[in-house]
Each structure stands twice: as structure tokens, then as C-alpha cells.
Design a protein around this nucleic acid. Structure first.
Length: 107
DNA sequence: GCTCTGACTATTC
DNA sequence: CGAATAGCCAGAG
């Protein structure tokens, strides 16, 4: 499987963009991918899974403001810690990020 | 160069 | 709202 490494340009781009997201702000996988001109939303997620250990992965969420699958609890802790605007929702996680306020785009 | 997988997205039921 | 389906892309084998 994609045993990721910083070898690929795509991976590097993802690492840079994610690392550049300020606290209290979030970007969707699609937006992050679009930032460096490549709609690989899934690929972005894979990079996070492998390098998430050293990245603010919770600042990268899915479209609709849902946290990454299987990491909803950990993500929520970071959001509250950074003051990221959350919204109550009838989702499995029980909440979702307020993209209208937390949504961020690289300058 | 083809196949498989995945922290995705959009559409449809 | 929730589950299922199909289409996406990048990288390893």
C-alpha cells in the first residue's frame, strides 16, 4: 500500500499547506488539494494518515465540516483547545466544524 | 504499465 | 439523516 514518504511533490505540497493553516482555522481536503492545483482529496487524506503524527491534521477536514473518519473524538479536543467554532449536528460524531467561520484559505 | 487501497466527494435512494 | 454507488488521485508492488 501507499506507504507514504516525502518523496512525492504531492505529499510535500500537502505537508506545506497543512502546516500553514493557522490555529482556529480549518480547510477541507478538497480545498487543500485545490491549493496546489490537484483535486486529489483522497490522496491528501493518505498523506495525513502517514504524516499526521507531525501535522495539525485536525485543521484538515472533510467537505461539510466533518472531522476525519475514526478521529472525530481527538479532533474535537483540538478544536475546543484552539477555539475552533463548532456546531452541533446529528452526525455520528455528534458535531461538525463551522466552515462559515473556521473556513480558511491560504493568502 | 496494470492493480489495489485509502483520514475523500458528490449523487441517489 | 443515513447507507450505498461511482468517480477521483497518488503511490507501492
Amino acid at each position: 500500500m501507499a506507504v507514504f514518504d516525502t518523496s512525492g511533490d504531492y505529499t510535500q505540497a500537502v505537508l506545506e499547506v497543512v502546516a500553514d493553516i493557522p490555529p482556529g482555522r480549518v480547510m477541507t481536503y478538497g480545498d487543500v488539494a485545490w491549493t496546489f492545483g490537484r483535486p486529489g482529496a483522497r490522496a491528501v487524506g493518505m498523506v495525513m494518515r502517514f504524516h499526521g503524527s507531525e501535522l495539525p491534521w485536525w485543521r484538515v477536514i472533510r467537505a461539510g465540516g466533518h472531522p476525519p473518519t475514526g478521529h472525530e473524538d481527538a479532533a474535537r479536543a483540538h478544536y475546543e483547545e484552539e477555539g475552533t467554532p463548532l456546531l452541533p449536528a446529528t452526525t455520528p460524531a455528534g458535531y461538525r466544524i463551522d466552515l462559515a467561520k473556521a473556513g480558511w484559505s491560504p493568502s
